[in-house]
Design a protein around this nucleic acid. Structure first.
Length: 215
DNA sequence: AACCAGGAGACAT
DNA sequence: ATGTCTCATGGT
């Protein structure tokens, strides 16, 4: 089975997902940091706190004392670490000149720059590249690793970079790669959440029985 | 009431 | 390069 075939199965099953769930590119970046190993519903609460405090800007976040920022982020868990990580990212973001300046970099330069921020690992960086800067990078998360290794299309222990390159090369000649990668990752997440979470045995799974059961 | 959720860094091996 | 520990809230 090819990766595009899996995509078509998922798209027929769930339809377009309208990702990333955010109003602005900066909100995408904040969400990408806060959703590290965390349920999205809890990230929404933290982002709501920032909005109520009128603090969903890099200026307001860097200006806030650690205790205040951590309190806003509390619902998303790991709030002390995430306060540091979000501050690191916002300080770097402002130093670099914000979206417009960063957007002039080519894909590789931008990815390396974002990845160099302490607190931003490969998945968070690729969320930001794909959903905020609309660059053609394929996001690999725990669901992707689990589903595609269960399908026998990839090795479960493959490195992040190896798996990302595999997806990007298999889909290298497709049109509108940004839109495709955007939708594909969203569909993987929605499949894992709405189908296999409700039915752990995955009976009638559109891909394969037991496709995302915990390893 | 244990288990998990759209990971990453520090540190040891 | 690869493995282990830590970080923490809220839903099931």
């Amino acid at each position: 089975m090819r990766l595009l075939t899996v995509y078509n199965h998922l798209y027929r099953q769930y339809g377009p997902q309208q990702w990333w769930p955010a109003e602005t590119p900066f909100e995408v970046m904040v969400g990408a940091v806060l959703t590290q190993n965390t349920a999205w519903i809890n990230v929404e609460r933290a982002i709501a706190n920032l909005k109520v405090a009128d603090a969903l800007t890099p200026e307001a976040i860097t200006a806030a004392p650690h205790e205040i920022l951590a309190e806003w982020l509390r619902p998303s868990g790991y709030f002390n670490i995430k306060a540091k990580r979000l501050r690191n990212y916002c300080e770097w973001y402002l130093q670099q000149g914000g979206f417009k300046t960063l957007n002039k970099l080519d894909d590789d330069a931008l990815r390396n720059a974002v990845l160099a921020v302490n607190g931003v690992g490969p998945e968070t960086a690729d969320d930001i590249l794909l959903y905020a800067f609309e660059r053609p990078v394929f996001v690999i998360d725990a669901y992707t690793r689990r589903i595609f290794s269960r399908l026998g299309l990839l090795e479960h222990d493959m490195s992040y970079e190896a798996m990302r390159h595999h997806f990007e090369q298999q889909l290298v000649k497709e049109q509108a790669r940004v839109a495709l990668f955007n939708e594909y990752h969203a569909l993987i997440v929605i499949h894992a959440k709405e189908h296999c979470r409700v039915k752990p045995q995955c009976t009638g799974c559109p891909l394969r029985r037991g496709c995302v059961g915990k390893i």
